[in-house]
Design a protein around this nucleic acid. Sequence first.
DNA 1: TCTTATATACTTGTATTAAAAAAAATACAA
DNA 2: TTGTATTTTTTTTAATACAAGTATATAAGA
Lengths: 229, 229
Amino acid sequence: MSMIKDEEYLPLRDVVFNTLRQEILTGKLKPGERLMEIHLANKLGVSRTPIREAIRKLELEGLVIMIPRRGAEVAQITLKSLQDVMEVRRALDVLAIELACERMGQEDLDSLYQACENFRSAVKTKDTRMLAEADVAFHDKIVLSTGNARLIQLVSNLSEQMYRYRFEYLKDDTSHEMLQQEHMEMYQSILRKDRATAADVVRKHIDNQEEAIIKQLQLEKNDRRKSVY
Amino acid sequence: MSMIKDEEYLPLRDVVFNTLRQEILTGKLKPGERLMEIHLANKLGVSRTPIREAIRKLELEGLVIMIPRRGAEVAQITLKSLQDVMEVRRALDVLAIELACERMGQEDLDSLYQACENFRSAVKTKDTRMLAEADVAFHDKIVLSTGNARLIQLVSNLSEQMYRYRFEYLKDDTSHEMLQQEHMEMYQSILRKDRATAADVVRKHIDNQEEAIIKQLQLEKNDRRKSVY
DNA sequence: TCTTATATACTTGTATTAAAAAAAATACAA
DNA sequence: TTGTATTTTTTTTAATACAAGTATATAAGA
């Protein structure tokens, strides 16, 4: 008799893993910044052991790179690495929407329409955070509907790596109308089970995003140049 | 003055990681088997710390699953998880060969042809291990030629998970001719920069493989039933 | 002034120790 | 014999200790 759900136990290493990942994705830990174990241990109030285990996982996720006997640092995002990620994402997002065309039931479709509407209202409010959330929710619905656990995991991992830049991109509201438009087109293609069109819209969607993020990256590089040199 | 290349230093955790991964992929460690730290530490002659860090990485790769406060065990391969992996692999292998059509230079093409020939001779020898290696080499050439680091990493990870079953599959030599045939078709499509055909061949290739592996899985399940009950 | 040697402090890599939890075994009662 | 408590053992989790390697700063010599 209680609201206590599951007494959710999370090992410290996973708490640390989530914390560090969040800090990297939101830019609190900047690319190139060193991750020193004792320092992090003190900051988070734990010993070095869970820190190290968390870093091992971040390493495999590609968010940090290891230099032997020197330690870990936050991975740089280069133009090349961005393009590589986007190339893969494009293929997986296309796969996802094609599968969605086949596998979405009426319930899923209704829920997707709802997500579409939510995004529309978020556009009106001009609240960037809300917008970002509505956008993620919409895309998640598509990927989740495939029921493919591996696909879900990979897409989520790849999107996360872009998170920081995507957020910046959404701050610029000139693209909002178009995004809304594209979401609606995706929904309608899935409704018609029109794989080819759905795939085309997704590709266009990703291309736009890639372009915007690249612009963002270049801007940032200029900023650094101005402030550092 | 020596053959010693680079004094390649590998942290113990990576040695352990590679060792354990190999043992899982070759079936020495069986699905469901528990990975106990002290036991492994004794077996490999190291302390528990590098064992734990290696397990963290295997966990993220999906080769082991963690049960909190109970430890790690080798991940089960279910029919569903296999189909999920293959669905993703199909999309990524198609992407790879499409990119290869655009990006392979003359050198790459020659080297791919060579790999094709190597596979042909391996078929003649009927040495399964050699055959498996020649097969991997051929596919690696295609994926590597894309120059997309992320794609390379993901495909390699996904293939690895199938390794054990693929090996069994290659033991059955009825399919060897067809494999050889398909490799040649891939090479020729890339040579002609014919993306559509190349993609079709790859899809067929993966479908065959998936079917064979499923058969393998089902056989194994029957074996277990016979021997255990 | 620049290079090089050496000492020193810092950081990672590995092992060991201590604590907490779960699983297994045993004892006891119905 | 079966079901429930209690104890013991095993195993993970986390912290700490120690060893080994790396970078940095200072000082001597060219």
